[in-house]
Computed example of a mutant assay.
Amino acid sequence: MQVDRRRFIASAGGAAAVAAMGHEDRAEALEHYMTDQLDRAVRLTEAAQSSVEPRVPRGTGNLFRPTASGFEPMPANATLVDFFTRRFAPARHVLQSANHAVQTGQPERTIFACLLHDVTQNLIKADHGYWGAQLFAPYVDERVAWAIKFHQALRFFPDDAVGYEYPEMYNRIFGVDYEPDAYVKTDYEFARNHRYYMEARL
């Protein structure tokens, strides 16, 4: 996905606002921007969507986007499909991620983790992996929750063994001196030596 650096910086509040952000905040803002751009293409094709989209308050997810019609009510016994169709849609990034996991023959738990790993961004952007893991942990295999939590830290660290390179986009947007916050580095070191490491890498 191509990212227009100027538009991204403007969406984050301008150059001064980006300069005042910590490294993790910048990464979260970029991921938010990219996810929103993927979903925006779908939203703009929907007839009910206004031609001018209201801005989401900084740090909050799309569920806080003001809408003229409000949300469609959830059924009494809502399923995950209901959440995807009525709250998370269009959710292109996680659907692409889960589809890739299916196409590469990953186990069901990995596919499920791919499907859920970023949906918490509909509520909150900052530390979405940590929040998502807490949200889903009571209901899913512990490896799924583990993958959701640690994908946030692992995205900053390349691993040639699985073909994951450091995102060049981070260099283009933030510069080559970009460094994750200390807690992210600590979690990476922990995850790197954990028996579930590959759960979050795949």
Rank of each mutant, 00 (worst) to 15 (best):
19 A>P: 01
24 E>V: 02
22 G>M: 02
52 V>I: 15
22 G>K: 11
30 L>Q: 00
44 L>S: 09
46 E>N: 10
28 E>S: 08
46 E>T: 04
29 A>S: 13
37 Q>H: 10
15 A>Q: 15
37 Q>N: 13
41 A>V: 14
45 T>M: 10
22 G>Y: 03
28 E>Q: 05
38 L>F: 09
42 V>T: 07
36 D>W: 10
32 H>S: 11
13 G>P: 03
9 I>L: 12
21 M>C: 07
32 H>C: 08
53 E>K: 08
34 M>N: 06
16 A>I: 06
40 R>A: 09
24 E>F: 04
14 G>R: 06
34 M>A: 13
37 Q>R: 15
9 I>M: 10
8 F>C: 05
21 M>Q: 12
19 A>V: 08
53 E>I: 12
38 L>R: 06
15 A>S: 15
49 Q>H: 06
21 M>V: 07
21 M>I: 03
10 A>Q: 15
30 L>H: 01
27 A>G: 13
34 M>E: 12
49 Q>W: 06
53 E>V: 11
43 R>K: 07
17 A>S: 09
34 M>G: 02
28 E>R: 06
30 L>T: 00
46 E>L: 13
31 E>H: 12
45 T>P: 00
45 T>F: 10
35 T>R: 09
31 E>L: 14
34 M>V: 12
20 A>T: 05
52 V>K: 13
10 A>W: 03
31 E>Q: 12
22 G>T: 15
17 A>K: 05
39 D>L: 02
12 A>N: 08
35 T>V: 06
26 R>D: 00
12 A>F: 12
36 D>F: 14
36 D>R: 11
49 Q>E: 11
36 D>Y: 13
53 E>F: 04
22 G>C: 07
42 V>P: 00
27 A>E: 04
33 Y>M: 04
17 A>G: 02
44 L>D: 10
31 E>F: 14
9 I>R: 02
26 R>Y: 02
32 H>Q: 08
40 R>F: 07
15 A>M: 09
18 V>Q: 09
39 D>C: 03
9 I>S: 01
53 E>Q: 10
47 A>Q: 09
16 A>G: 02
14 G>V: 06
40 R>W: 03
11 S>Q: 09
50 S>C: 02
10 A>I: 05
20 A>E: 08
17 A>D: 00
19 A>T: 12
11 S>D: 15
20 A>G: 08
9 I>K: 01
31 E>T: 13
36 D>K: 12
15 A>V: 14
19 A>L: 10
23 H>N: 13
38 L>T: 03
22 G>N: 04
13 G>S: 05
49 Q>D: 03
34 M>F: 04
42 V>R: 08
28 E>N: 09
29 A>H: 07
24 E>M: 14
22 G>F: 01
41 A>S: 09
41 A>Q: 13
24 E>G: 06
19 A>Y: 05
35 T>E: 06
29 A>M: 07
20 A>D: 11
21 M>E: 05
18 V>I: 15
8 F>S: 00
35 T>L: 09
13 G>D: 11
8 F>W: 02
48 A>E: 10
40 R>K: 15
11 S>T: 10
32 H>I: 00
32 H>N: 11
20 A>Y: 07
16 A>P: 00
25 D>G: 07
25 D>M: 08
9 I>D: 01
10 A>M: 11
42 V>Y: 01
40 R>H: 14
45 T>Y: 09
53 E>G: 04
39 D>I: 02
50 S>T: 11
9 I>A: 05
36 D>A: 13
52 V>F: 12
